[in-house]
Amino acid sequence: MRVAGMKVKIALSSLRIASFYALLSMLWIILSDRILGWIAKDYYQLELFQTIKGLFFVAATSLLLYFFSRKQMSTLFLVQSASEREALASLKEKELLLREIHHRVKNNLQIIVSLMSLNAEQDGLEDLKSKIRSMALVHELLYSSEGLSTLRADEFAGRLATVLLESYGEYGVTISGQGELFYIKVEKAVPIGIFVSEACANAVKHARQSPNEPLSIRISMRLEDAKVTVEVRDDGKGLGAADRSSLGLGTTLMAAVAEQAGGTLQRRDEGGAVVWFCYPAD
């Protein structure tokens, strides 16, 4: 913006110089011819005065052009320097973003390997696919957003519900997502996505008396008292005393990613199972 403003300033300055030169030249020609007509006594004297007048005009305008062009060149140099500084700053920013992308990819690959190891002894291919899809969704939302470091919570919750419904919808499960209008940093978004995915997988497996029963799951993300709350609730049979005290693989994974996001896993019964965690808003 600063460089663009300087370019506009140069263009306006050039227009003023050209206008001033045109006006000065016209006034000089008209007035000098009349004055010479008054003071010249004959044709030869008029011709001499015309020659002197022309030489004086060339010398004066050359001097003016020298000073004006010198000023313009100084301004152009400043614009070029500012452009180079902006280009260098943009290049450094892109290098930082590229390093950050490589770092995120490395971390996400490590998470995928860990998830595959956890699911290796189970028939959990669909669950693993849903977790990987939730991680991919984070990056999809990132490159389609204005920034590269935050996601809108309402969009994230809604899209997560859509992705997970593709995995579990055929099992008689409905999944909805709702979020308030605030932003989640990308380092929080990946563990949140895995947490929600695992919570939905647990609900599909354990919340119903039989696999044919319908099940409704609701995902919510809200900002309250400078804390972000991520919650998944279902309308199934609830946790029960044994489930609330047990630490199965799914619960362990949810606790781990909740801790990674800066929170602690919480569970309760409330018309079904409710799992959630909170972390301080940045």
Results as ranks from 00 to 15, higher is better:
residue 168 Y to W: 15
residue 186 V to W: 04
residue 195 F to Y: 14
residue 169 G to C: 04
residue 182 F to L: 04
residue 208 R to G: 05
residue 172 G to Y: 02
residue 204 V to C: 10
residue 210 S to F: 12
residue 191 P to M: 08
residue 188 K to V: 00
residue 207 A to Y: 03
residue 175 I to F: 08
residue 183 Y to F: 12
residue 190 V to N: 06
residue 196 V to T: 14
residue 206 H to N: 09
residue 178 Q to K: 15
residue 167 S to K: 03
residue 196 V to H: 13
residue 211 P to R: 09
residue 170 E to S: 12
residue 170 E to V: 00
residue 168 Y to L: 04
residue 206 H to I: 00
residue 210 S to E: 13
residue 180 E to K: 13
residue 186 V to F: 07
residue 203 A to Y: 03
residue 166 E to K: 11
residue 196 V to W: 13
residue 203 A to S: 15
residue 173 V to I: 12
residue 185 K to M: 01
residue 206 H to L: 05
residue 199 A to M: 09
residue 174 T to Q: 14
residue 205 K to E: 08
residue 187 E to F: 09
residue 188 K to H: 09
residue 165 L to R: 14
residue 200 C to V: 15
residue 190 V to S: 08
residue 191 P to N: 06
residue 183 Y to S: 09
residue 169 G to L: 02
residue 189 A to Q: 08
residue 211 P to Y: 10
residue 205 K to D: 04
residue 211 P to D: 06
residue 179 G to V: 03
residue 168 Y to P: 03
residue 179 G to F: 06
residue 206 H to M: 01
residue 207 A to I: 01
residue 185 K to L: 05
residue 196 V to C: 13
residue 175 I to D: 05
residue 191 P to A: 07
residue 167 S to T: 07
residue 187 E to P: 00
residue 195 F to L: 12
residue 193 G to W: 05
residue 197 S to D: 11
residue 193 G to V: 02
residue 184 I to P: 02
residue 179 G to H: 06
residue 202 N to R: 15
residue 204 V to T: 09
residue 187 E to C: 00
residue 180 E to L: 06
residue 191 P to W: 08
residue 201 A to G: 14
residue 191 P to G: 09
residue 204 V to W: 07
residue 189 A to W: 09
residue 165 L to C: 05
residue 185 K to V: 00
residue 194 I to E: 08
residue 179 G to R: 06
residue 199 A to L: 08
residue 206 H to V: 00
residue 198 E to L: 11
residue 195 F to W: 13
residue 192 I to Q: 03
residue 185 K to N: 06
residue 198 E to K: 14
residue 177 G to M: 11
